[in-house]
């Protein structure tokens, strides 16, 4: 294969993976704090709209991405108020959040359909040569850096330790004096912000325009990725590349005339996630050395904050 083609495939794979990585990283931090937010799709689509509208309104990409992050974070905080302040059930609240986000973005977004936001500059604009540079962008690089940052935060910083402690056993963390609810609210704001940014990548870089429901299920894939990754940031990266890779390679194989059943191929990531989940859960139960590979123990449980 010519090197241009390979560079193109790799760049295409990264583009497909970036929104997934962003949303999944956010959800990973949320789940590490012991909260399960199933509303990723809703937060993503709000980010996609808010970012696009801000770009059209102001012309600035900086403002656009900031708006998307803030809008996503606001959605995350809304979920936080429901589940952390008012102790609502997380599963039901997350589903309601998705419904609300899809509706709200479509309602506001009706007027923005058909507008264009211009082409987001790629790395070749910085003078880098080649097909690879023309298919990659700074958000993508920032996303890769963010994977490292989140891994560092969770493993190496005190705040990260507190967050994990809260997610493992909220009662114990509370007894030590950690602010369980505040930590979780912060995690939810971060998770929402990342989902919003992922959505904006879709509407400002990947497609780039706004139409309602444009996230087309990517929020749910991000949720699957977190599990697939066994709550490890670097595995999120690997998983997103795999998910993105399967999509892109499937498209390319068709272009080359190879006959592969699209539906069977599309099932693979989900089946792989279940397989990984089994392996991780088994390890998590048997050996304490791999304890960090299993789900946070307080995941999805209500913290009543007594004592």
């Amino acid at each position: 294969m010519p090197s241009d083609l390979i560079a193109g495939i790799v760049a295409g794979l990264l583009v497909a993976a970036t929104p997934l990585i962003l949303a999944a990283l956010g959800e990973l931090v949320v789940e590490k704090s012991g909260v399960l937010n199933l509303g990723v799709e809703g937060m993503m689509v709000i980010g996609a709209y808010a970012g696009f509208a801000a770009k059209v309104g102001t012309g600035s990409y900086g403002l656009a991405f900031t708006t998307a992050i803030l809008a996503g974070a606001a959605m995350g905080l809304l979920f936080g108020v429901l589940t952390q302040q008012l102790l609502s059930n997380q599963v039901a609240s997350g589903l309601a959040l998705t419904l609300f986000g899809l509706g709200l973005s479509a309602l506001f977004g009706a007027k923005s359909t058909g507008l264009t936001a211009g082409a987001f500059p790629r790395l070749d604009a910085l003078g880098l040569p080649g097909r690879f540079a023309s298919g990659t962008d700074v958000i993508m690089l920032a996303t890769l850096a963010l994977v490292f940052a989140v891994a560092y935060f969770l493993e190496r910083t005190r705040a990260g330790l507190v967050l994990r402690a809260v997610g493992e056993n909220h009662d114990a963390a509370h007894a030590i004096g950690y602010p369980v609810v505040a930590v979780r609210m912060a995690a939810l704001a971060f998770g929402g912000g990342m989902a919003g940014l992922g959505g904006a990548y879709l509407s400002l870089v990947q497609t780039p325009f706004w139409v309602e429901r444009m996230t087309a299920g990517r929020g749910w894939i991000a949720l699957a990725l977190v599990v697939f990754a066994a709550w490890q940031p670097f595995r999120v990266l690997a998983g997103a590349l795999l998910f993105g890779g399967i999509t892109i390679l499937q498209l390319h194989s068709q272009g080359f005339g190879l006959k592969i059943d699209a539906q069977i191929l599309s099932m693979l990531p989900y089946l792989a996630t279940i397989a990984v989940l089994i392996v991780m859960s088994r390890q998590g139960r048997v050996g304490s050395s791999s304890r960090r590979l299993r789900a946070p123990q307080s995941l999805g449980k209500v913290f009543t904050g007594t004592a």
Partner: peptide
């Protein structure tokens, strides 16, 4: 717009879940 129904349902659910407390 059909989106109104989703928003409205979302609100209904939020309030029902929130008042459960």
């Amino acid at each position: 717009p059909s989106a109104t129904t989703s928003v409205f349902q979302g609100l209904l659910l939020f309030f029902l879940l929130a008042t459960d407390v």
